[in-house]
Design a protein around this nucleic acid. Structure first.
Length: 277
DNA sequence: ACAGATGTTGATGT
DNA sequence: TACATCAACATCTG
């Protein structure tokens, strides 16, 4: 699922795939254009199709920013700049196709540039495109979010300050207001790398573990960013499972050999009871 | 057949 | 305030 590394991979892919003029946009699902960042098609803009055309038709990419799991795409036509926030929700992704390919179910937006087709695909429709004023883009990207988990990594002391409370460390690290970018899969991996049990309360995290967390968060994310030459493949869709513990219930921990546990309470939480204290 | 899981986020409730 | 749970959606699994 799209967490920070997948979103950064998508950012790089879009820059590589659409280096010049975008000839046209086809809006296959008008509800993908929303009035605000929202998981709900009901928040669609009434004139979303026209807005999308105004944004993309004949435009060139000026730059694409990222904060956490959000992208901010700035488009330029002549002297006029326009911008959109892009969020992938749970199943959103971008794919490159050719002119002979027909978009199937799940394709929400299709861009054409020469012989290249770039589709925004999102079966479950939690993802969205939100027009914003370019001047507001930075603020809108960051709205309600903490620092970027990769580009603005927190040191151990700041991480601890921001985490203090009654919630388990896993829940804290997935809270985008604490730091932006981690979702369920990568937080599970980060906690394994830092040898920390997901249910640990912040007060019980030893100083050395805060230091490991501060180091392993950006390290984990950086390790999973794909270069744009690769077709973007969601790491948990098909193929080999690239993770150390996620999705590996019962398999031996790569570090200590103890069978990996899947927590019954917090769903999809995998950890090693042998070396995650 | 159908209940439950998936995994993100804004909205709602405690 | 802070934290937990829900709703949105589509697909897959047992």
């Amino acid at each position: 699922m799209p967490e920070l590394p997948e979103v950064e991979s998508a950012r790089r892919a879009l820059l590589a795939w659409l280096p010049g003029r975008i000839d046209a946009v086809t809006v296959l699902d008008p509800a993908v254009v929303r009035s605000k960042l929202s998981t709900r098609p009901a928040d669609a803009l009434a004139d979303g199709v026209d807005v999308a055309r105004g944004l993309f038709d004949g435009a060139t990419t000026a730059r694409i920013l990222r904060h956490g799991k959000r992208l901010g795409w700035v488009l330029r036509r002549g002297r006029v700049e326009r911008a959109v926030l892009l969020h992938f929700g749970m199943t959103g992704r971008v794919v490159r196709r050719s002119a002979t390919d027909e978009p199937g179910a799940g394709v929400r937006l299709a861009l054409a540039a020469g012989d290249t087709r770039v589709w925004f695909e999102d079966r479950r429709r939690f993802g969205c495109v939100v027009p914003v004023r370019p001047a507001d883009l930075d603020a809108r990207l960051r709205e309600g979010h903490g620092p970027d988990a990769l580009d603005e990594p927190l040191d151990a002391a700041t991480l601890r300050e921001r985490a203090l409370g009654r919630r388990a460390i896993k829940d804290v690290l997935m809270d985008q207001a604490v730091l932006a970018g981690l979702g369920n899969i990568h937080v599970v991996e980060v906690l394994w790398r830092a040898r920390l049990h997901p249910d640990t309360l912040p007060n019980d995290v030893p100083p050395a573990a805060w230091k490991r967390l501060a180091k392993e968060i950006p390290a984990q994310l950086a390790d999973f960013i794909e270069q744009p030459d690769n077709e973007i493949t969601y790491v948990n869709l098909g193929g080999e499972n690239p993770f150390k513990v996620y999705g590996r219930e019962g398999e031996p921990c790569p570090r200590c050999g103890t069978p990996i546990t899947r927590s019954a309470r917090s769903r999809s939480t995998y950890f090693c009871s042998g070396c995650q204290a």
